[in-house]
């Protein structure tokens, strides 16, 4: 008979660029590692440094206006050379449909990076970027309006663990979490859940 069991690892991150190393000791009857899940809790609003606002540049001087051209006199041969058309770099670029789609996307703030490692041939078997939030969950949802907005807790899909299949012969799993948040003094908790298949005693 095989049963699943989950190990919860809690990491409290309090320093910028903090590296948190942990080890999970698997039980002797661990058959294989079947999945990984993670989540986080924010204990303090991170202070994101904002760049100083630069004063606007003065307008460039206008080119000198050309004197009005006189009409050619009789017998005078005047040929006008028109300059070749040049691409104007200051002109606004034309918008493509893909630009229109990307206009409202917001970047998801990155908290950090998680890696799990086994000391056998599998080596690093799991890597994940842990994001602070999902900012585009309601993107292009036609049902949204001023009163009905999309949030992670209303529109999330069902949560399943990230499936992996790794034999449980190696009794120790090492994990490394690196903080990569842009805030000065982060304060958050990352939870990692390691699912294993446990061989129960024969009845």
């Amino acid at each position: 008979m095989i049963r699943e069991q989950v190990f919860a690892i809690k990491m409290h991150i309090t320093k910028s660029k903090q590296v948190y190393v942990f080890q999970v000791k698997l039980p002797q009857n661990c058959g294989r590692i079947v999945g990984v899940e993670y989540g986080h809790r924010q204990l303090k609003v991170t202070e994101i440094p904002t760049p100083p606002i630069e004063p606007p540049l003065p307008d460039p001087p206008l080119p000198p206006s050309e004197p009005p051209k006189e009409p050619p006199k009789e017998g005078e041969d005047r040929t006008e050379v028109t300059p070749p058309p040049t691409t104007d770099s200051t002109a606004p670029p034309t918008e493509t449909p893909s630009d229109e789609l990307m206009k409202n996307f917001q970047r998801n703030e990155l908290f950090g990076e998680l890696r799990l490692q086994s000391c056998d041939e599998a080596d690093i078997f799991y890597t994940a970027d842990i994001k602070a939030s999902e900012n585009n969950i309601g993107e292009k949802d036609f049902s949204l309006n001023a009163f009905w907005k999309a949030f992670a807790y209303t529109h999330q899909t069902q949560c399943f663990e990230d499936e992996i299949s790794l034999n449980g012969k190696n009794p120790v799993i090492t994990g490394v979490y690196k903080d990569k948040s842009s805030g000065q003094n982060p304060d958050y908790i990352v939870n990692v859940y390691l699912w294993i298949e446990r061989k129960a005693a024969q009845d």
Binding site: T154, C159, N191
Partner: peptide, 24 residues
């Protein structure tokens, strides 16, 4: 079945999941 400190959000389902599939 779920250990202490297991986050509730992992057992929730939003409206993007069809009603018949919302249970863990």
């Amino acid at each position: 079945f779920f250990p202490e400190n297991y986050e509730s959000k992992l057992l929730m389902s939003g409206i993007n999941v069809s009603p018949k599939q919302r249970y863990y």
